[in-house]
Design a protein around this nucleic acid. Structure first.
Length: 132
DNA sequence: CCTATGACAGACA
DNA sequence: GTGTCTGCCATAG
């Protein structure tokens, strides 16, 4: 999928992914909401599982709303676990992650005041015009 | 236009 | 806590 064929939603999702700080995680539903498509969690999952769009993005910081890695057991699961642990995120049995401790909250904390966060919000606003 | 497919999430037993 | 059912949505063909 080349850049030109990307939908506004896909671009939104990529913008959100790029804004997730190291060592933090977000849920699929949260990404959808930040991309102004509150109920499109499955759409986010679809984009991530089609690796072309996720290439070069911190896809491993997205986990299920129940606080666990949402890949079936296998290579992908182990890779996500390894990547998260490399950033200091504790991953327990079954891919469990403590959301209360690691979930990113864009509107609170230092992240919201960072330069990267302001850029993120600016891009988000811009992309919103593209959405129907 | 229509159907099928998911790395989802909420509701409920 | 687990297991199942159901709605939801973006994409692909």
């Amino acid at each position: 999928m080349d850049r030109r064929s990307e939908t506004p939603f896909t671009r939104q999702v990529k913008t959100v992914l790029r804004a997730i700080p190291r060592g933090r995680v977000v849920t699929y539903g949260q990404v959808a909401a930040l991309a102004s498509r509150e109920r499109a969690a499955r759409g986010v999952a679809w984009i991530l599982h089609s690796s072309a769009a996720a290439a070069g993005l911190p896809w491993h910081r997205v986990i299920g709303g129940r606080g666990a890695i949402s890949l079936p057991p296998g290579r992908g699961f182990r890779e996500q676990k390894t990547l998260l642990e490399a950033e200091g995120v504790a991953v327990g049995r079954g891919g469990r992650v403590d959301l209360r401790r690691y979930q990113w909250e864009p509107s609170a904390g230092a992240a919201a005041r960072s330069r990267a966060a302001r850029k993120f919000l600016r891009e988000l606003t811009k992309h919103r015009k593209d959405l129907p």
